[in-house]
Amino acid sequence: MRIWLIFIGCGLVTYFSRGSFILFGDRVKLPETIQRSLAYVAPATFAAIMVPAVLGNEGLASLVPPTPEVGAILIAALAVWKTRNMAIALAIGMVSLWLLQWLGL
């Protein structure tokens, strides 16, 4: 029972975070400056989630020489930048990772 209540609690805090503004509809209006700054939430957040996941336990040491993960993520970044297509970027990124791991680079 305790586990269920914990997960329901987790679900509620998550739902109301997501709904914090949307649920209140057109009644809430943020100041212009804040609304403009929210345009940078996406790049800042996605980078903040991605970077520690790629560098892993080795940290900055995984940059020189680059680990297969670092190499693959850079290739995937180039792919998505050029094609704007996530499916292609995912495929190229994963294949590069396997190749780099296999080559022992």
Binding site: Y40, F46, A53, A76
Partner: peptide
Amino acid sequence: FSVPILFMGLMVLSIKNQPGVIAAIIG
């Protein structure tokens, strides 16, 4: 590892101008 690739992709697609690049680098 497809998860970090996904977030790298979302990051690149969400960058629309120079300040966006700066937001990503700092983040």
